[in-house]
Structure formats: C-alpha cells, structure tokens
Nucleic acid binder design. Structure first.
Ligand SMILES: NC(=O)c1ccc[n+]([C@@H]2O[C@H](COP(=O)([O-])OP(=O)(O)OC[C@H]3O[C@@H](n4cnc5c(N)ncnc54)[C@H](O)[C@@H]3O)[C@@H](O)[C@H]2O)c1
Ligand SMILES: NC(=O)c1ccc[n+]([C@@H]2O[C@H](COP(=O)([O-])OP(=O)(O)OC[C@H]3O[C@@H](n4cnc5c(N)ncnc54)[C@H](O)[C@@H]3O)[C@@H](O)[C@H]2O)c1
Lengths: 208, 208
DNA sequence: TTCACGCTGTGAATTCATACACAGCCTATC
DNA sequence: GATAGGCTGTGTATGAATTCACAGCGTGAA
C-alpha cells in the first residue's frame, strides 16, 4: 500500500493538520492514533494507514510527535513555492470564500478574483482585486496561479472552466452543479451544496 | 442490489432530477441512460443501476420517459409534506445559502435563521427571519423543521449541533470543519471547503 | 532483570461502489 | 414475417477503501 496518497487520504491529511495545529498550541507533545481518530471522526487504523502514506512514524509509547507530524503533513500537502488560487464569480458565495480565505494560510491563498460585471471589475473585495475576464490569461501567468474556483451560475460554468484551463490552471474547485468537460490533465472537484442539502433532507426524513 | 438507495445513489438522484428538469423544459420526451450519463458525468451502467433503485423503468427503444422519471425521482427524494430547514449562523456563508435557496424549491426551503448576535436577531435576510438562539426549540416545533444547517465558526459548531438535536432536528448539514458528536439517529453531512481547496491545490501541483 | 501493557505498523479480510458484459426485448425496416 | 440494431436490466467481476487482527517493540513497574 505504498505510492502517492489517494484522493481520500489527501482530504484526511488536510483535516489532520488543521486539528493538530490547534493541538500544538495547547502544548501537547505526542498524539496517539486513537486520539487523532476521535477528533477527526475516523478509525484509529485509518489514521495509522494515512500516517504510513506520508512516511510519518510514531513510537508505541509516545504516539506521534505533534510538531513533527504537522511538519510532515505540510511537506506532503504544501507546494514548496506555495499555491495561488483565482476565484471566478464574485457573487454571494464568492465573497464568502474571499473573506474566509484571506490571510489564512501562507502557502495557499486567493490572489485574484474575476467577474464579468463591469461594475465589479477594479474593486477590491476582502483585499483581493477583481479583474475582468479578458485579463485572466495574463493575470494567471503573472501571479503564477494554479488553482481556479468556479462560483458563477451553472450556465456559465463550462465556459469559465475552459477559460481557466486555457489560461494554464491545473486544478478547479467547482461550486456549480454541472459536470465539467475538462482535460484529464486538470484535476477538478465539485462541491454541490444543493445535492448535499437534498441528501440530508432525504435521510433526515428516513431516520424520523 | 435492492433495498433503499445508498448515500451515493441519493446524491446522484438529486443531480439527475435537476438535469432532467432542465431537459423537460426543452420538450424532450425520452432520455437514454448514456445521454443522462453524459450530462451527469457518470457511466451509463451507473445510471441504469440508479434507475433500478427507484423502480423506474425505460423502454429499450424510447429510453426513459423524462416526465415520468422526474415524477419518480421526486416521489423518492421529496417528503410528501415537504422538508423545512433552519440555518444557524448568519455570516458570509449563511447569507449566501439564504439568498440561494429562497423560493427555489417548494418541497425544501430554509424557513428560519438563527444567530447569537443581538443585532442580527429580528432582521429579515432574503425573506427569512433571524431568531435568537433561545427561540430555537420553539421555532423548530412551530415550523416543523427537520433539517439544520450549521454555518457558525468551528468553535461553536458542536454546541449548535447539540442544540439542534435537542430541538428535534434529525438531519444536519455542517460547514464547520469539525467532526460532530451526535446521536446515530441523526444524519449528518459535512462540507469542508478548506479541505476541498487544499486537495485541489495538492493534485493541481501533482498534475503539473 | 523480568514482565506485562498498550501502541504502532501492516498483511489479510471485508465491504462497498463502480464497471463490464450480455441476455432479452422492442421497434423499425425490408 | 423475418431480421438486424440498439438499449434496458442485471449477474458478475473488478477495484478501491476501510477495517480487522496480530506480531513486534519500547517503556515503566515490580
Ligand atoms: N449558497 C449558495 O450560494 C449556493 C448554493 C448551492 C449552489 N451554489 C452555486 O454556486 C454558484 C455561485 O452561487 P452564488 O450564490 O454566489 O451566485 P451569484 O449569482 O450570487 O454570483 C454569481 C457571480 O458570477 C458572476 N458571473 C456570471 N456569469 C459570469 C461569467 N460568464 N463570467 C464571470 N462571472 C460571471 C456574476 O456577475 C455574479 O457576481 C452557482 O453555480 C450556484 O449554483 C451556490
Ligand atoms: N468560504 C467560507 O465562508 C468558508 C470556507 C470554509 C469553511 N467555512 C466554514 O463555515 C462556517 C461559517 O463561515 P462564515 O465565513 O460564514 O463565518 P462568519 O464569521 O462570517 O459567520 C459566522 C456567523 O455565526 C454566528 N455565530 C457565532 N457563534 C455563534 C453561536 N454560538 N451561535 C449562533 N451563531 C453564532 C456569528 O454571529 C456569525 O454571524 C465556519 O465554520 C467556517 O469554518 C466557511
């Protein structure tokens, strides 16, 4: 079970790091797989498997060293040069994203926003400048942007995805409820909030 | 492979319905599994399996009747009396949710908002009244609310989840990046946007 | 020094979702 | 009426992710 961490593993690694970052502030030295498992909401065996995937090793008596582990996870997760993201669609959701991610993580930040509405272009939202769509390819190159976030209406999502790809972006986080047709070179992940809410309503009714 | 639709299947059913709703407006009579599969971004076999799960059947020559199918999916997905949701945390993300879901679907709507900030209580945001946290148990009963949406900071998420459960909610959509400890009676789904963005950045770098 | 405990690391088993592959069928066509 | 084509419905296979289960080990106690 070696090789690069899988899709699911990478997601959990991200969560582990966030939880451990909190814990390091409380001054804990070590953490056991079952402790991390409890706060992360997974099994202890799962945690140990994930640790194997990043080559972290713990001691049977002290568990995993928290600081070492955060460092190890960061080496795996963060690009050494950092990653920069562009947000397309400065609407309600887009503004929420901008406000949330501004200045949160040095290695991963939203450095540009795009919108087609002329009255939004040129404005600075949450410390992030909004550009016109025409400027995308230039801005993506200048700012070394590798990630795009699509927060436009679903009717515009496919066009935006293609523009992002053409500009050189290699990862897309898509909030629009459409299946994007993109090159297999480009990684994409969809977050469909409507689907999620409908699913919760479905199973809430079933568990009544 | 009978029995109730699985977690993943329910999610796809929701997506199918949305896609088919658009299609019915264009006047299409029937749809083949491979057509629906293409727009949904899944395989044709997957579509047919999902159709089996809801007991929908198509004809080898005409495919599935679109109107019948939407009806069939709605019978499966929608509670006959409708589902009503409460949003907790009228911040950036909460307001985006409110504006997006207002008046969108008759069988699933956000009918109340809650926040602890006194200056938000009593205001109407996107047609939805904001209540104080003290009013939760009463409002949940009065409005027959079965679903809760958690959009508060992660430090407050567990407390809010417990309050929602105590009030009688049986399904929770959680945006805070913490694993909720809730009764197994209650269904919960997490949407962790930070994790999703970190994952996209990770695989974007890898596919460079 | 010896022993017992509890955790790590990991092969094996299990579970679950998805994809394959084809029998059966309906329709259109000749 | 016979035939060919293409799609549905589904048993089976494949593949991936998770869990089980335990050997190995370091530590602290007796
Ligand atoms: N809670 C939510 O907000 C929510 C929930 C579920 C799904 N979504 C999805 O997220 C996406 C965004 O939702 P929202 O609520 O922020 O929408 P919104 O209407 O508030 O914002 C959309 C923004 O995109 C811009 N835009 C439109 N077409 C564009 C184009 N071709 N190029 C560039 N910019 C363009 C608009 O000017 C606007 O600023 C939608 O696809 C929606 O389906 C949102
Ligand atoms: N793009 C985003 O907005 C984004 C991205 C990733 C994660 N999240 C998560 O979503 C959640 C909400 O994010 P946000 O950006 O909307 O935050 P926000 O700070 O804009 O809003 C939080 C709201 O919750 C209210 N609140 C705080 N404590 C409360 C309590 N105990 N009871 C009731 N209300 C309370 C606050 O008054 C505020 O209105 C957070 O957990 C965050 O981690 C958001």
């Amino acid at each position: 079970m070696d090789g690069p961490p899988s899709y699911e593993t990478v997601g959990r690694l991200s969560r582990y790091r966030r939880l451990l970052t909190r814990r390091v502030e409380t001054g804990s030295e070590g953490v056991y797989s079952h402790e991390l498992a409890a706060v992360a909401g997974v099994s202890a065996a799962q945690v140990r498997r994930d640790m194997m995937a990043v080559g972290a090793n713990g001691s049977p008596t002290r568990g995993y060293n928290v600081e070492k582990l955060v460092e190890c996870l960061s080496v795996e997760l963060d690009d050494p040069e950092g990653s920069r993201a562009a947000l397309v669609g400065v609407g309600n959701l887009g503004r929420a994203m901008l406000s949330f991610f501004q200045g949160r993580r040095p290695k991963l930040s939203i450095v540009a926003a795009f919108d087609r509405e002329p009255y939004k272009v040129g404005r600075v939202v949450c410390g992030c400048r909004c550009y016109s769509m025409d400027e995308m390819s230039q801005v993506v190159i200048d700012k070394k942007i590798t990630v795009g976030i699509i927060a436009v209406p679903s009717s515009a999502a496919q066009a935006v995805a293609s523009e992002l790809e053409d500009a050189g972006v290699r990862g897309i986080l898509n909030f629009a409820p459409v299946a994007l047709r993109i090159s297999p070179e480009t990684f994409s992940e969809d977050i469909d909030m409507t689907m999620a809410l409908e699913r919760v309503a479905y199973f809430a009714g079933r568990n009544s």
